[in-house]
Amino acid sequence: MLKKEEPQDPSVAFRYPRVITYKHSLGYQSKFAHALKMGRIIATKCPVDGRCTIPPRIVCPMHHVKQTEWVDQGQRGKLLSAFKINFPMFDSRTGDLKSWETPIVSIELEGGARMDGWCSETDTEKLKPGMVLEAVWRPAEERQGRVDDILYWKPV
């Protein structure tokens, strides 16, 4: 699909590969990362309409008020949508083309917030909106406070 056509003649065109390291502060969202390390999912809650959001935000984007309350979201959620990528796409963590066999699912958690994840069920025909999925975590000692501390979601 995505062919890499390498330029042959640098006087016509040339490539310049680069790898750059950034240090991003998670700021207010750090609490979410700490929770992941503990095997928990939490979200901020808007004091106006009570909506919980992931990523958590210090201010509600719609109501422009501070979101000081954090709410536990549980370990389970309802499937909203699922799809599989049928072609090699770039892995942003390595810069390489890679095949992706696991479906990506969107889940509405028990606490009401929504998030994305991988799914253990690779047959997308069997994934129906509304079905209940449960988080499967990395072993505690391997968790880094990143979203992929949740290895995947499995149907209950």
């Binding site: 990528i85 892995d91 942003s92 990506i104």
Partner: peptide
């Protein structure tokens, strides 16, 4: 895109 939040997925206009 934000590496922390979407880095594990190949996020793009297609997805």
């Amino acid at each position: 895109a934000n590496e922390y939040w979407t880095g594990q997925f190949p996020m793009s206009p297609i997805t």
